[in-house]
Write a protein that binds this DNA or RNA. Structure first.
Lengths: 183, 183
DNA sequence: GTCTATACGAGGATAGAC
DNA sequence: GTCTATCCTCGTATAGAC
């Protein structure tokens, strides 16, 4: 730790991630160019390619942790019977991950729900969450209405800050809807 | 009407729209390049720019009618009191437009719900539907839970064919959820 | 090990000849 | 009404300086 503070050598990878997360969240993934990120850091585009193989890999590196946690929820759901109690528990765990994720990564995911559909790795996995959770939560012979209910509740369980109100208020509203909607 | 059938002169604009709608729906708006469309028609990219000023304008021309109809629903909702009956009626009208739209335009919209968020004109207006409908449907002093319910039902009201089951089955499932969820 | 210079082919868009 | 030629930006790739 001899070279501290202002100079900042060797942490380029982290600095790329910081800038990328901020831009991806505020301007959107598609609308953010590698040139922007590079210029913001005072390096060239090519420098980014030393640290990451593609633009998508930058995204993936940001989403790695949350992706793992969501995958764990899917696996947990699959590992037991599909009862109503466990479906509700599953949704609680999902809400927890969303709340607990640090650094606004989950906000970035929501902001880009659009763009991530077309990607192929971790980003796609995160976006695909709802479909996977829905499948894991319902038995194969579930009715159309049950499936539709599950889908609706997975969307409803997104009490974004643009709804207004305190975070706790939004959380309890989401919970009431879960109770109403889960098959 | 002297020059009919195979030759097809002067209807290039319509032919562009036909090809574009098909590609936008199956491959996605972002993933469809103007070069593809042009090659499919046996013309060059630049030729498209005689008929449309931008790629987005091609999209907008396809969405014009549906955009108008959705706008009418918003206006109707705003024009009267916000009772539960009228909220449910609003959702029925929305479902009708979705079903009644010809030529798979609405399917294109759903397929691209992703990409349309970032656009600025008719496409954005169509995508923005849910937010606008939600605002029109609820009084200004609505609670957080009411807002969240409205949002959930607008998403739930999308009984896409990938749910399985007959169209009528999906429709009645959607209606049951509406009854359950509308504040 | 970290970066710059440079280039490629794709994208959307434009000017102007025919 | 359609073309060629051109421009800029994009993500990506590689060669080579330090």
């Amino acid at each position: 730790m001899a070279e501290t503070a202002t100079r900042r050598r060797g942490d380029t990878r982290e600095r790329i991630q910081d800038v990328a997360l901020e831009r991806f969240t505020t301007s959107g993934y598609d609308q953010t160019s590698l040139r922007e990120i590079a210029e913001d850091l005072g390096v060239t585009k090519a420098a980014l390619y030393y640290h990451f193989r593609t633009k998508e890999e930058i995204l993936d590196s940001l989403l790695e942790q949350v992706s793992t946690e969501l995958d764990a929820i899917v696996e947990w759901m699959k590992s037991g019977p599909s009862t109503r109690e466990r479906r509700i528990e599953m949704l609680h765990r999902l809400a927890e991950v969303t709340r607990g994720t640090p650094g606004g990564v989950m906000k970035c995911v929501q902001q880009n729900e659009a763009a991530f559909q077309n990607l192929s790795t971790a980003a796609a996995m995160v976006h695909d969450l709802k479909r996977k959770l829905g499948e894991a939560a319902l038995p194969g012979d579930a009715t159309v209405e049950q499936r539709l209910r599950m889908r609706a509740v997975l969307f409803a369980n997104k009490p974004d800050s643009d709804l207004g109100g305190a975070a706790s208020e939004r959380a309890s509203a989401a919970e009431a809807i879960v109770e109403d909607l889960v098959p």
